[in-house]
Design a protein around this nucleic acid. Sequence first.
DNA 1: ATAAAGTAGTTTATAAAATAAACAAGTTTA
DNA 2: TAAACTTGTTTATTTTATAAACTACTTTAT
Lengths: 95, 95
Amino acid sequence: MFKDLNPILHSQLRLAIVSLLISLQEAEFTYLKEKTKATSGNLSVQLDKLKTEGYIEITKTFRNNYPLTMCKITRKGISAFEEYVEQLKSYINPG
Amino acid sequence: MFKDLNPILHSQLRLAIVSLLISLQEAEFTYLKEKTKATSGNLSVQLDKLKTEGYIEITKTFRNNYPLTMCKITRKGISAFEEYVEQLKSYINPG
DNA sequence: ATAAAGTAGTTTATAAAATAAACAAGTTTA
DNA sequence: TAAACTTGTTTATTTTATAAACTACTTTAT
């Protein structure tokens, strides 16, 4: 009847992050922060969860002397997102 | 870009409850418990939250000597659900 | 050269939510 | 009349989300 919702994706901020990365492939920390309107701390924590789950990859470099954190969606992240959407449908669509 | 997700509905159990009530109009506590596979305690707490929010009405009677708790969706609950689905679309659909 | 302000984050502490365990109040069955 | 069952509620615990505080370094102004 109701499929279990992937708890990693069933979070407003993590869902927004993954949603952005799905369409962009990759994005910078600061870009994600601006688009999601999250605080740095919250974003940092949620990115780490997504990374731990293998849904994104994080690479740290420098640009113009400043730290630059790049986040990239993985294949696992993409299919988890697609599954999550299917799970949601079991709640949204009657029957 | 991303609409805020109604936190009352952005919960696996509460979403399942409301989803069921949307199609049935009303349902008994025990029925909801069976369909959602929730524990009684969890169901009790979440029904109370939905009631407090005005999304459902709860009426308590007896049937065959046993307590009978009936839950009914309200107009407010219906429109909150519809809004929630719209909010979700801003995450799911690119653009 | 150095203090003040800014960038880009991380870590830790607090608040909120979900869940489970324990309890209540009765009913039925053996 | 005791044991087991029904239908829940309340309280305690765990998990999760969020915010506050901190780190580390850079740039700008003095």
